[in-house]
């Protein structure tokens, strides 16, 4: 469980995180989304006690993390794939980390095995690919067998196999009853992974709800249709009182009626339909719409 309460972070006059409140529940994978510079990393760092909030608080398992003497068994975190010294081997990095929290050294081999780095364990981290560093970071996060795990952009640099593995891992961790928070700036990465979404833009909360509820916010769905000359068809739809929007590919996006009715209207007007497709509003569209709003809102407020 992670509870974010009226969290605010200011650097001088710049407000990076602005009165953010949400909760991340156990047993579910929560996607933490926002465009670049939305304040995701700053929020995560405050959650982990690395940055101090200007106002508000974050509680992990009931307490701000900074109040704990040791935290590896409370929360595991992958912040930046590079958060290890390049001169040490993977196994040395994890041994030091485990030892600092009194975690059994046997866990080191277990997590290295789990993330698929057993063969590279004695190689120096400096020679690792980005994907291997991500795996090492994930190994570090799992080291203390914590009830809460936080991953900042974990899919960066992973190959398709790695992406599939990580998604499976998130699902399994959540299935074991853990709280799993995964940040990303790409909606597509969360679409098949997250149960819940927390979306922020310019440091402010845009949405905190289930993936399904978020998808339902979309307004981009409808029927896409293409004819040789769209103007007469557009007039037919207008006469029927149907909303229609020209698309960049020369087609029309019709909302409110189904594909069958679109075909009938075109036939009635004597037009040959060259293309017809049902289109649902993708999560990506919803995400873009909502975060674009937040950007506009942000400039509005400045005036």
């Amino acid at each position: 469980m992670i509870e974010v309460d009226e969290l605010t972070k200011r650097y001088g006059a710049r407000t990076v995180v602005d009165a953010l409140s949400f909760a991340v529940r156990p047993g579910r994978v929560t996607g933490f989304l926002g465009p670049n510079g939305a304040g995701k990393t700053t929020t995560l760092r405050m959650a982990l006690g690395l940055c101090r909030p200007s106002e508000g608080a974050v509680r992990v398992m009931g307490r701000p993390l900074g109040e704990r003497a040791r935290a590896l068994t409370c929360v595991g975190a992958l912040l930046d794939a590079g958060d290890a010294h390049g001169g040490r081997s993977a196994v040395a990095h994890l041994r030091a980390l485990a030892r600092s929290n009194g975690v059994a050294q046997a866990r080191v081999d277990e997590v290295l095995d789990e993330v698929g780095l057993a063969d590279a364990a004695r190689r120096r981290v400096g020679g690792f690919s980005l994907g291997m560093r991500q795996r090492l970071g994930i190994a570090g996060a799992l080291l203390g067998d914590p009830p809460v795990v936080v991953f900042d952009e974990p899919l960066n640099g992973l190959d398709p196999e790695g992406v599939r593995w990580v998604r499976g891992l998130f699902r399994r961790l959540a299935g074991e009853g853990r709280t799993v928070l995964v940040s990303s700036h790409l909606m597509g990465e969360m679409e098949h992974t997250a149960d819940d979404l927390v979306v922020i833009g310019r440091g402010r909360l845009i949405a905190a709800e289930t993936l399904a509820a978020f998808a339902a916010r979309g307004s981009g769905g409808g029927v896409w249709v293409r004819v040789d000359d769209p103007a007469p068809l557009a007039r037919v739809f207008a006469a029927e009182g149907v909303t229609v929007r020209p698309e960049r590919d020369g087609g029309l996006l019709v909302s409110g009626i189904d594909a069958g009715r679109v075909g009938e209207l075109a036939a009635g007007a004597g037009l040959v339909v060259r293309g017809l497709a049902e289109r649902s509003s993708s999560l990506e569209d919803v995400f873009m719409e909502l975060t674009a709003d937040s950007v506009e809102y942000g400039t509005e407020r400045k005036r």
Partner: peptide, 8 residues
Amino acid sequence: RTTFTAVP
């Protein structure tokens, strides 16, 4: 960051 997350 890794060190101080594990040992606040």
